[in-house]
C-alpha cells in the first residue's frame, strides 16, 4: 500500500520524500474497541481502531472487525494487514488469520 497525502514530512518539514514499501506485519501500540460508531461503520460495531507500529518502520492506523471486546486485544499484540471488505486499512491478529509470508 502507498500513502502519499503529504508533500513534506510533518515531523521535519523536508520535502525530499521517498516512496517506501511498508511491512505487512506489526505491533499494536494503542487501540480502542468502539461500541458507538459513525455512519460508515454502523453495521460493523463493535470493532477495534488501532495504531500499529510496522515491522521495518512506520506507523499506520487501521481497524479490526474481528475484535469485539477490550479483552480480545492488547497493546503489544502482533497483527498483520488483511484484505478489507470496505475502504480503510484492515488488520487481523496473527493468532486469528493466516499471516502473509
Amino acid at each position: 500500500m502507498t500513502a502519499t497525502w503529504a508533500l513534506a514530512c510533518p515531523r521535519c518539514g523536508r520535502a525530499a520524500l521517498l516512496e517506501a514499501p511498508l511491512g505487512e506485519r506489526g505491533t499494536v501500540v494503542a487501540f480502542t474497541v468502539l461500541s458507538v460508531p459513525g455512519d460508515e461503520f454502523l453495521n460493523d460495531a463493535p470493532y477495534a481502531y488501532v495504531v500499529v507500529e510496522l515491522d521495518g518502520g512506520g506507523r499506520v492506523t487501521g481497524w479490526m472487525p474481528s475484535i469485539k471486546s477490550e479483552g480480545d486485544l492488547a497493546i503489544g499484540a502482533r497483527v498483520h494487514f488483511v484484505p478489507g471488505y470496505k475502504p480503510g486499512v484492515q488488520f487481523a491478529r496473527d493468532a486469528d488469520a493466516p499471516v502473509p509470508r
Binding site: 494503542a30 460508531p37 459513525g38 460508515e40 481502531y49 495504531v51 492506523t61 481497524w63
Partner: peptide, 30 residues
C-alpha cells in the same frame, strides 16, 4: 457523531472507523 468526526483526518482516521470518543480512547489506552 458523524459530523463531529469530520474534524478528524478523513482518509486515515474516519475511514478506519475512528470517532472522537474513539480517538481520545486511543490516547487513553496509550
Amino acid at each position: 457523531t458523524s459530523y463531529f468526526a469530520e474534524a478528524a483526518d478523513y482518509p486515515f482516521e474516519t475511514k478506519n472507523g475512528a470517532t472522537f470518543p474513539g480517538l481520545y480512547a486511543t490516547l487513553a489506552s496509550a
